[in-house]
């Protein structure tokens, strides 16, 4: 009897899972990354307190990070106020509460939507800029060049950018809130007739300092988080243009993730 042919088998066995996708490897890299970020954050506090203080660079970065983000943040704030008003109107009309429209949108904007949306826009605009700039400086050995010329690149590049982001985001949020309220005024008047005086009265009767101050305090934390994460990603980028792309991308993704995580910060 002729032996039946042996079933075809893969001599190498099942395809091995790539190392980067194995759970143990993923956890290991997650904890290593977290530890590295914690060290970076600790170094930021240490370097921020010690001289030399790079005031000139801080002002330059505040201009670049703040002023250059202003148009995008302003347009976003205006559109959010306008859309929120137009979308909320039918529901309030159904319940006969149309007079509450300016107050409702104003409280939503100032307490949560303004700070969070502005921080997310800021993470995309300023965070990507910081991540890409530092990563390309790293790749082109400019950070090494600073070190060998006796300059502390962490102090010059990281501390100035993180402080600028921390200070400028609250300013941008105030602008976004103001433009958002203007958008609300426009939205209210698209299908109704509310005078500016009445609108302002309705808005400010409903708003209190306890709405504004915790929200503003939170934006300092958002700005700081975006600055630290973007600088960390740029400062620790891998070599090559691929490294710049990855650093920029992960600076934005992790900054937005951090902003969304911090929404539940006690000030809320």
């Amino acid at each position: 009897m002729e032996a039946s042919p042996a079933p075809a088998t893969d001599s190498t066995g099942p395809t091995p899972v790539p190392a980067a996708l194995r759970p143990d490897s993923w956890f290991k890299s997650f904890f290593l990354e977290t530890a590295s970020l914690a060290r970076f954050t600790g170094r930021f506090f240490k370097e921020a307190l010690l001289p030399p203080y790079e005031f000139e660079e801080l002002l330059k970065q505040a201009f670049l990070i703040g002023y250059k983000s202003l148009p995008l943040v302003a347009i976003t704030g205006f559109i959010i106020g306008l859309v929120l008003t137009i979308q909320s109107r039918p529901t309030l009309v159904r319940f006969g509460a149309i007079s509450w429209l300016p107050a409702m949108v104003a409280v939503s904007l100032v307490r949560e939507i303004g700070p969070v949306v502005t921080a997310i826009i800021f993470a995309g605009k300023a965070g990507s800029g910081i991540g890409a700039e530092l990563a390309s400086m790293n790749v082109s050995e400019q950070i090494d060049a600073m070190q060998v010329s006796g300059t502390n690149p962490f102090n010059f590049l990281v501390v100035s950018r993180v402080l600028a982001a921390t200070v400028m985001l609250p300013v941008l949020v105030v602008f976004a809130d103001a433009l958002g309220l203007f958008g609300t005024f426009v939205g209210v008047n698209l299908q109704g007739d509310v005078s500016a005086r009445l609108f302002v009265t309705q808005v400010f009767e409903s708003l209190e300092f306890k709405d504004l101050l915790p929200a503003l305090a939170k934006t300092f934390v958002f700005g700081w988080a975006v600055g630290v994460i973007s600088c960390y990603k740029g400062f620790h980028s891998n070599s090559g243009t691929e490294g710049v792309g990855k650093a920029t991308n992960s600076a934005v993704v992790f900054s937005i993730f951090m902003v969304l995580s911090l929404i539940w910060w006690p000030c809320s």
């Binding site: 700039e133 390309s136 400086m137 082109s140 050995e141 400019q142 090494d144 060049a145 060998v148 010329s149």
Partner: peptide
């Protein structure tokens, strides 16, 4: 230190 790429500050 003169770097291979010169490492000039682009900005």
């Amino acid at each position: 230190f003169l770097f291979q790429s010169s490492a000039l500050y682009d900005s």
